[in-house]
Structure formats: C-alpha cells, structure tokens
Write a protein that binds this DNA or RNA. Structure first.
Length: 512
RNA sequence: GGCAGGGUAGCUCAGCUGGUUAGAGCACGGCACUCAUAAUGCCGGGGUCGCGGGUUCGAGUCCCGCCCCUGCUACCA
C-alpha cells in the first residue's frame, strides 16, 4: 500500500468561499477518492491562510480581533466543504500553534543548513499609503498608484530579511527539465522555465509593517523583530501539517501532489522547492496547476465571486450534480466556463437521461423479470468493452499524463452510452416473452447490472453520494467507497437483491 | 512590447508527422421501440475549418503577412 499525501492551496481568509475555491477542492477531492479506491493510504490536506495585512485590516474595520475574524471564516469554509462532500483528512490553519512553530523551525533550519541563503537588505520602493503596500512599476502610472491616483507615492526604505532565490536558478531549471512530471500541465512548466531563464530575483522573507503573522525567528541586526512574509508562512503549511519538526513528520513528507491554481504555480514550483532545498528537505513529488472557472468570460475572484452563489449552485441539483458538472465541463488542465444553461443541459442529458435512466430501466427489469434477484450470466461484450474503458479511465486519472478528470468522465460516459445501446439491441422485454430465451435474458441483465456497479465505482470519486445510492439500489454489498478497482474485472453480481428507489437524478416536473 | 497557446457546425470541442465525401457530444428535425425519469435507439439537416497570399498533384493540417482571444512577464494572496 503506497501513501498518497495530497494538498490543495490554502484559501486566503478575506472573504467567503466561492466557486473558484470550490472547483479546486472538488477536483482534489476526486483525486483523493480515486486514490483511496486504488487502495492507497491517502492523506488529504486543505486549509486556510489566515495571516496578513488584509485580515488585520478587515478585522479592525469590523471591530473584532483578527483571530475572531478568521475563526468565523474557517468555520464557514469547513461547513461549505462538508456540504460539497470534500473528504479532507486534515484542515490546517496558519494560526494553528503547530503551524507557527513549524514555520519557525523551517526558517531556523535554513539558517542552519544554508547560512548564506538569508541576508538583510534595505529595500527601497514606492509605497502607496492608500494600499499600504509597495507598488511595482507596472502598477504606477504617471507617478501615481493606479488604485489611488489622488495620493502621492512615497519613496520608502525598508530593511528586510531576503531569501537568495537567485542561487537556485540552475537547481530549479534542472528540476523542471529532469522531472517533467514535477510540474504539469506542460504549459505551466514552459512558463516557469521561461521565467527561470529570464533570471530569478531574491524574495523578501520578512516585513516590518505586517503585524498579524508569525514573528521571523531572527531579529535584524538593528534588533528589530519582523514578521514572516507570505511565502515563508503560507507555503510551509504542507510541511507543518505533518507535525514538522516534531514526531513522525518524515513518515508523511514529502507530499505526493500539490493541487494549486495556475496563478500560484509559480510559488509552488519555484519558491517552495528552493526553500525546501535550502533546508535540505525532500521536495514534493509533483505540482498540478489547474485552470479556472470562468463566468461570462471572467474568472471568479474575491471581487467577482458574488456573481454566482455557491448555495444556489448546490441547491439547483444537489452537491453531486454540481461536482459532476464542474469536473465534466471545465478541463482540469485549462479554463472553462460555468453557465446555468450548460449546467441544466448536462444534468438532463448526462445524469438524468443517460445514466440515471439506464440505472432505472435496468433495475426495473431485474425486478420485473427476476423478482429483483440478479441472475447469473456469462461475460458479454459489455464487460469486455468496459475493461478497455477502465484502462482509459485510469490513464486519465492516475497522473501519468496529468490529472485529466474531465477526460475520465468522458470515458465513463462512453460506457453509459453503450449500456443504453446494448439494452435496445437486446430488447429484454422481447426476450422475456419467450421462455426459450430465458438464458439470453439472464445474460443480458446480469451484464448490465455488473456494468452499473462498475460505473458506480468509477464515478464514486466524482459523485460520492449518488453512487452510494445506486450501490444500495443494486443491492451490492458494503459501501461503494470501500471498493477496489483491482476487483472490478472479477465483479459478479449474482444474487444481489436490487431495490429500485427514487430516480437518482430527478427531472423537475415540467410545466406544459 | 517579449514569450507561449488558441481562433473548425447554434454551443463545447476532436482532428498526430499534409491525401479519398472535415468528425463527436449537446441543441434541432424525422422514424422506431415501450424496459425506463416522454427516457432510449436509428436516420438526417447544418461548417467559405479567423483573413490574405504562397509551397504542393493535393492543406483545416506546412511557410509568410495581418486581425482577434487567452496565459506568463514575480513580493495582494
């Protein structure tokens, strides 16, 4: 049994969860559940990034302490993840004492193992009082901050700890080229290689203005104790979650997979590996930069999040249908669009008509012709074709070509389509009229029940509740989540007692 | 601006190293069937393959130019 430690980005505590957050968690959850069905010892980590100026400011505006603010948000996020069926094993918060201690330990370890990698430097830049932050040239127009054109930018000097990222150019280039799977999809890797070739600048590791965070373990030569800047606070969560530096952290680290948005692949594939290398710690095995959910051509973000309410999306057809839609419609390696029209089309065409109805008609026939007890029947073409499809499914899911969740679903629906074709071709209702054809009827329905069971297992990572409901209707033993892919080729449904229930994916009563 | 990817049926997209009538799903029209959530199956209509040149016996597929879209171009996270 191999271990599989996977993570998502930790979400920044500056607003309620939106579809963009949900998409990443749902995708990662599908991978986690898939690995469990393979028999892996999965540890699925998600969490929140709770430090930073924005949190501090928002709390001040609301007249509460930062801790009180993030406590509420963490609760809101966890509630949402539960509603969406996210099967996380651990929820880390950067305000956890364990994390804060781990961050200090990691930084101290870098000081210890790579003493030259941290250095003090005076940073001089244009500071916008309105934004309370330094501005890059790209954010300055006519000498004014683009967000606060009425204010005057101040030339401010700040002395910070810096991390010598530039030293790791060759190391990182070699990492990305010698281990092509380290960063996928390929488009992201090419971008990062271009970035490295352009030269890496050192990054600051501490800030003086920032108060809400982890104290940087070493004071500046002036004696000032600064606060750890975001890279060295947020990124290490994956490591500190294992308990580092205490206990059996090495049993879990390194992570097998970091699932992150394409906007932060840079931090995960450049800064993070360099930090770990500086600390002489193992690197994560791979980073996957997924795309974004777009709405009307724009990406979801803190500002646009209000345009699609998660509660409404879940309420429309339920959490499982929402999960299915996002992962089927939006390629996990690129961007895709959400629209209510497509959501309804997919729900009706894929879930209700194709799959739900296939289950419905097959189970109904077993009840009608066999009093609900699945007959024994030899393998058929259906079983053979599904075996080939299972291989395609794994090829899309197991990471060798990336994590192409949308493709895995497409493959399963090929099986669904063939199931419906097979029913029509065999026409069990005709076979049932002729006692001499009883054997054909048995073979047909037995193979269709096997097919539904296999589909339930393959779809369990995507729709955990609906597949369990089908599993129950099929009269299959145990829970669908306890099944193993390895057992599917030998799956035998003989003797199962089916029990048709309500439609898996009911269509609304259409007004006429 | 530089680098990368893309513009193919109403919609979402496949089309590898150039080769017979350009494909799939959804949507749409007709037929069949009746086990099923009026679901399913079969058949069909529908495309100047972004624009303009060029190479070639032959280009959606190669070359040149142009137009448009997206991503990356590092300290909000």
């Amino acid at each position: 049994m191999s271990t599989f430690f996977l993570t998502t980005a930790i979400d920044y505590a500056n607003g309620d969860p939106h579809v963009g957050h949900a998409y990443e968690k749902i995708g990662a959850d599908a991978i986690a559940r898939y690995r469990r069905l393979r028999g892996d010892d999965v540890h699925f980590l998600i969490g929140m990034d709770e430090h930073g100026q924005k949190v501090e400011q928002t709390a001040a505006q609301q007249g509460v302490t930062p801790q009180a603010l993030v406590d509420v948000l963490a609760d809101t996020f966890c509630t949402m993840w539960t509603r969406l069926g996210i099967s996380y094993d651990q929820f880390i918060r950067t305000t956890d004492p364990m994390h804060r201690e781990g961050v200090r330990a990691l930084i101290e370890r870098i000081f210890d193992r790579s003493p030259d990698d941290f250095y003090e430097q005076a940073y001089e830049g244009w500071y916008c009082v309105g934004c309370e932050s330094f501005k890059q040239d790209s954010e300055i127009v006519d000498g004014k901050c683009v967000l606060h054109p009425t204010r005057t930018l101040e030339r401010v000097q700040e002395r910070n700890w810096f991390f010598r990222l530039s030293r790791y150019e060759d190391f990182l280039r070699d990492l990305l080229t010698s281990r092509p799977q380290f960063l996928q999809p390929e488009s992201r890797r090419n971008e990062m290689l271009a970035l490295i070739d352009g030269g890496l600048e050192d990054v600051s590791a501490s800030r003086s203005r920032l108060k809400w965070g982890v104290p940087f373990p070493k004071p500046l030569s002036s004696g000032e104790v600064q606060t750890t800047y975001v890279w060295f606070d947020a990124l290490p969560n994956y490591l500190t979650a294992t308990g580092f530096p205490r206990g059996e952290w090495a049993d879990r680290w390194p992570a097998q997979l970091h699932v992150v948005g394409k906007d932060i692949t840079r931090f995960h594939s450049i800064i993070w590996p360099a930090m770990l290398q500086a600390a002489q710690l193992p690197l994560p095995e791979r980073v996957w930069g997924h795309g974004f959910v777009l709405l009307g051509g724009e990406r979801f973000s803190k500002s646009a999040g209000v345009r699609l309410d998660l509660d409404e999306a879940i309420g429309r057809f339920g959490a499982d249908a929402f999960r299915y839609f996002l992962l089927r419609e939006i390629p996990f390696d690129a961007d895709g669009s959400f629209s209510w029209e497509r959501f309804e089309e997919r729900y009706n065409a894929d879930l209700a008509n194709a799959w739900g109805n296939l289950a419905s008609r097959v189970i109904a026939m077993v009840e009608r012709y066999f009093d609900g007890v699945v007959p024994s029947g030899a393998r058929t073409q259906v079983d053979d074709e599904d075996a080939a499809e299972l291989r395609d499914y794994h090829a899309a899911m197991d990471g060798t070509r990336g994590f192409l969740l949308h493709e895995a679903l497409r493959v399963v629906w090929q099986s669904v389509v063939r199931g419906n074709e097979y029913v029509d071709r065999q026409a069990p209702w005709k076979l049932a009229k002729d006692p001499a054809l009883r054997g054909d009827l048995e073979t047909t329905l037995a193979s269709l029940i096997r097919q539904l069971a296999r589909q339930a297992v393959m779809l369990a990572p995507f729709m955990p509740n609906k597949t369990q409901e089908l599993w129950r209707q099929l009269g299959a033993p145990g829970q669908v989540s306890e099944q193993r892919f390895a057992a599917l080729p030998e799956l035998d449904a003989t003797g199962w007692k089916v029990a048709k229930g309500d439609p898996l994916f009911p269509k609304e009563a259409r007004e006429r």
